[in-house]
Amino acid sequence: TTFEIRVGDLRITLHNADEEEIRWAEEALRRGIHADEILRTLEERRR
């Protein structure tokens, strides 16, 4: 599944994310964390 998060002009697309990952990514985007860093962190958490 694919889920797109939008916060203002910012956007990130997550693939195969669970609800916790989606909530975490949305909050991180709101705090101004760059999408590349969010994706990198999620990848590390999945390992």
Rank of each mutant, 00 (worst) to 15 (best):
R31L: 10
D36Q: 07
E21K: 00
G32K: 03
F3C: 15
A17K: 02
R47T: 15
W24M: 07
L42E: 00
I33R: 08
E4C: 09
H34S: 13
E20V: 12
A25Q: 00
H34Y: 13
T2M: 12
R6F: 14
L39Q: 08
E37F: 07
I33C: 07
T1S: 06
D9P: 08
R31Q: 10
I22D: 00
A35W: 05
R47F: 15
E44V: 08
E37Y: 08
E26Q: 09
D18G: 05
L10P: 01
I22R: 08
A35K: 09
T1V: 12
L29E: 02
E26V: 05
R23T: 11
D36V: 05
D9R: 02
L39G: 03
A35N: 14
E27A: 12
R46T: 02
A25I: 08
A28N: 07
L10M: 13
E21G: 04
I33G: 05
E44H: 02
E27S: 12
I12R: 01
L42Y: 02
R30M: 13
G32R: 01
L10G: 06
D36S: 12
L29T: 03
H15W: 13
E4P: 04
T41M: 11
D36G: 08
R6L: 14
D36E: 14
R46N: 03
I5W: 01
E26Y: 10
T41Q: 13
R46G: 03
R45K: 07
D18W: 09
A28R: 05
L10I: 13
D18Y: 09
L42I: 15
I22S: 05
L42A: 01
I22M: 06
E19V: 11
G32W: 01
I33T: 09
T2E: 15
A35F: 10
I33K: 05
E19A: 12
R11M: 15
T2A: 15
L42F: 05
R23Y: 11
N16W: 07
W24E: 02
R45A: 13
E19D: 12
E44N: 04
G32A: 02
G8A: 04
R31P: 00
G32L: 03
I33Y: 08
L39R: 05
L10R: 12
E20H: 02
H15I: 12
E19I: 12
E20P: 07
E43W: 06
D36H: 01
I12E: 02
L39W: 06
R6M: 13
I38G: 00
R11K: 15
N16K: 05
T13L: 09
R40H: 15
A35C: 03
G32I: 00
E20I: 08
N16M: 08
E19P: 11
A35H: 10
H34Q: 13
I5F: 03
E21S: 04
E44D: 08
R40C: 06
L10E: 13
E19G: 09
G8Y: 05
L14K: 00
T2F: 12
D36C: 10
I5T: 02
R23D: 03
T41H: 07
T41I: 11
L14I: 10
R40P: 01
E26F: 12
L39H: 12
H15F: 13
E43H: 06
H15N: 12
L42D: 00
R6E: 13
R46A: 04
R31A: 14
E21V: 02
